Computed example of a mutant assay.
Amino acid sequence: MLKLIVGTKGSGKTKTMIDMIDKAVKTTSGNIVVIEKCMKLTTEINHSARLVDVDEYGVAGADMLYGFVAGVLAGNYDITELFLDGILRITDHDMAAAAKVLNAIDKITSNIEVVVTVSADAADLPEDLKKFVI
């Protein structure tokens, strides 16, 4: 199940996601993976969640992000929550590419809660993504 935390820069999206990660750490029986760019959450999230920096793996663009997420999921069937911070930074601020990869990720994560932050105004989202906004 895909959920989007949407808002402009500085609106508290990452803080909301950190709170969701902390709650998941306390309640989940599976594994939690947090994917981000630049490792800014290193000291802010519980060490029980697996933090992965896409820069360490050379991930750039929507297609590479999809392959990376699919590989992470294929490598660990115990993942119950996946958090992705700042998708537009990874897709070079290409909203159409971000929408495409989010829809593709949604198709392969039917049993996993996926939470993604999007730095944009909700009105600027493509119509097919608005249904995922929380």
Rank of each mutant, 00 (worst) to 15 (best):
A98E: 05
E113F: 02
E81T: 12
D106E: 15
E127C: 01
I87V: 13
G86K: 13
L125G: 03
K100G: 01
V116T: 00
P126E: 09
S119C: 06
D106L: 00
L84V: 15
S110Y: 05
D92Y: 11
A99D: 08
A98N: 06
H93R: 14
T80A: 09
D85L: 15
I105C: 03
I105N: 04
T117M: 03
L88M: 12
T80K: 14
R89H: 12
M95H: 13
D121W: 02
K100F: 00
A104N: 06
P126G: 06
D106I: 00
T109Q: 03
E113Q: 15
A104I: 00
E113Y: 04
E113H: 07
V118T: 01
V118C: 03
V115R: 05
N103P: 06
D92V: 07
I112C: 00
V118S: 00
A122S: 06
R89Q: 14
D92I: 12
S119P: 02
A104G: 01
I87Q: 10
D92L: 09
P126V: 02
N111K: 11
A122G: 02
V115C: 02
A122R: 10
A99R: 11
D121K: 11
A99C: 12
L88D: 13
N103H: 05
A96N: 11
T109N: 06
H93A: 08
V116P: 01
F83W: 12
N111S: 15
I112Q: 01
L102H: 06
A122L: 02
K100A: 09
D94P: 07
V118P: 02
K107W: 00
L82Y: 14
A122H: 01
D94S: 15
G86V: 08
D85R: 11
V115I: 10
D106C: 12
D85C: 11
D121Q: 04
H93E: 09
V114C: 05
F83A: 13
V114M: 05
S119H: 00
E127H: 01
I108D: 08
A98L: 09
L84N: 05
D94G: 11
L102W: 10
T80Y: 04
S110M: 09
H93C: 12
